[in-house]
Design a protein around this nucleic acid. Sequence first.
DNA 1: TCTCCGCTGATAACGA
DNA 2: TCGTTATCAG
DNA 3: GGAGA
Length: 332
Amino acid sequence: MSSYEDPNGNLIESFRVLANYYRENKDTIRARAYDNVIIRIKQIQHNLRTKGGNGKITEISQVPLGDGIGKKSREKIKQYIDTGRIRQVEDILASQPKPEPKNEREQVIALLKSVWNIADASAKKLYDSGIRSMQDLKDHQDLLTKDQRLGLKYYEQLQKPIPRDEIRAMKYVIIVILSHEFGRNSFNLEVAGSFRRGCKQSGDMDCLLTSNKFSLLQAVQALVKWDVIVDGTGQRTEKFMGVAHCPSAGKDKGIFRVDIEFLPENEWGSGLLYFTGSQSYVIRVRAVAKRKGYILNQHGLFYKNGTRVPVYTEAEIVNYLGLDYLPPEARY
DNA sequence: TCTCCGCTGATAACGA
DNA sequence: TCGTTATCAG
DNA sequence: GGAGA
Ligand SMILES: Cc1cn([C@H]2C[C@H](O)[C@@H](COP(=O)(O)OP(=O)(O)OP(=O)(O)O)O2)c(=O)[nH]c1=O
Ligand SMILES: [Mg+2]
């Protein structure tokens, strides 16, 4: 659910095919290399758009070497500009005619993994214990952890993507509740994730929250009291993962996953940079930091000895690392 | 040419 | 109960 | 596959 169409048609999609192909074949490093190509293409398109154009790359001279695009990827881009296709991509698509016919074990494992909090290891164990369907799962909840039962309980509702407007509505509900409970100006709240990147729909709602007046636990308790958070997982100081219900939606509608990242105020910028994503963009920026001898995490930018580099906004952080600031919409 | 590839929080399971 | 490791998640 | 040593 990206915010912009690709002005170059299928260029980005082509590199996505390459990335996913290597990811499926467990070559995550090469997959990330292609993720980085996409990030760089998006940045170039953004720059062209800023100059007043429509963002379309029309000649290879607009694609310099470096910043994630090397000789071979540049050659692929050239091929795309010239012919509208990339040989390697066509080969991959041709080699996998339709959705691959999987064997029964793989199918069942894929199904089990679609439950929140069930991943590879659990899915395999469950299969080996004889679980073959969602019904089996419901009949054998003793095999599940607390969190996995939660995923099962809301399985159906969590399949649906969340419309942008629903997240916007929920944001103001949360602001009203926290203001009422703890006072105006007692906190900072931003909805990050795909919402902040401008996507029309999201898989969950990612809230970044800071406050000197209350803890994450207190915030969650208030939201539970007002029936906005309906379920969640255990004790927590920094990160809450739960299930919310948007009151403006119907009774059984507007149920979705909410994550709350609760940080000290001075970590706001690094928190935003992390929580806004995208995942591949975060990995990319952190890789750059690491190569230059720093560690970047949600708490800030640090020298290797652990002392903090005094940069506090998203722009300060990426500029310090020698990167251009990109608006959330352009962060693939 | 060789080496490295993001980084952390929460929870459950394990072993002493 | 405590420290460590595995798993899942973002 | 790309970047730095
Ligand atoms: C999944 C994931 C997310 N993140 C960060 C970057 C993400 O933008 C941010 C929020 O995660 P997500 O909510 O999983 O991703 P998203 O908001 O970009 O997309 P969706 O619509 O599916 O919710 O957390 C990671 O650092 N590593 C990960 O593996
Ligand atoms: Mg999200």
